[in-house]
Design a protein around this nucleic acid. Structure first.
Lengths: 118, 118
DNA sequence: TCCATTTCTTACCAGAAAGTCAGTATATGA
DNA sequence: TCATATACTGACTTTCTGGTAAGAAATGGA
């Protein structure tokens, strides 16, 4: 594995490191998709259609290294790999739900996320 | 003001847009620093020493546009500008606290945020 | 006159993050 | 023999983010 870029964040009562761990475009989404149990790589890909394979793998690997995600491979052909949340990943997911709720309540139809503005 | 880059996020039960709004290196930190009332630009700068003026202004402007932050200028010389949270910004801050707690409990001494790894 | 103060703007640049696309391995079934 | 499915890897390119440095405006004070 090659050198992973530091995802550096200013410290701030714990919030900085958190964004270091789930910052970026995909991590939180992936975490969310894993919340109801183990999912195969391919299935995960289908659940998040916009992501590229490369990104999905890259993010999963980083999350695995950070102890959020568990990876289990079955030696079959064609190969099968299941991803699931660790206890830590699950707890992070829990900590994320208020934020998710906030989004649902306050960001419906908000221009951010699908438009450009001046 | 020039075209602001879209901060595009994949939709996911509200979580995508949320990261569109507080994603990036500084927003959450700024939000946090505003939690105990209005702060002058200069004071904010001193509270977050690592941030550059350009970034601070840029992020504040985006947060203002997103309705998270209120900007009040006093016509004095030298100029004085106060920033404070809107109700929306405050509620986002609240939604952020579990995440912050999670970070404090689970990320103490974690390599992310101040190191490089392989 | 010249300097300091404060908030902000602009131009430019480096590096990081994310995207595209082609390729690899292996057993199975047609 | 050949295509298929699956989970990846690597090279390359594009887009985005963040950083530095310089300067503008306006007034009061040395």
């Amino acid at each position: 594995m090659d050198k992973v870029a530091i995802r550096k964040q200013p410290y701030n009562d714990g919030l900085g490191p958190v964004f270091g761990i789930i910052g970026g475009k995909w991590k939180a989404v992936i975490l969310w998709e894993l919340s109801d149990g183990a999912v195969r790589f391919g299935a995960l890909k289908r659940r998040i259609p916009q992501i590229s394979e490369k990104m999905l793998i890259q993010q999963l690997r980083e999350m695995e290294a950070d102890g959020l995600v568990h990876r289990e491979m079955f030696h079959q052909v064609p190969p099968r790999v299941d991803y699931s949340l660790t206890r830590l990943g699950g707890s992070l997911n829990d900590a994320l739900t208020p934020l998710c709720e906030w989004g649902k309540q306050n960001l419906q139809g908000h221009p951010v996320a699908d438009e450009t503005r001046d």
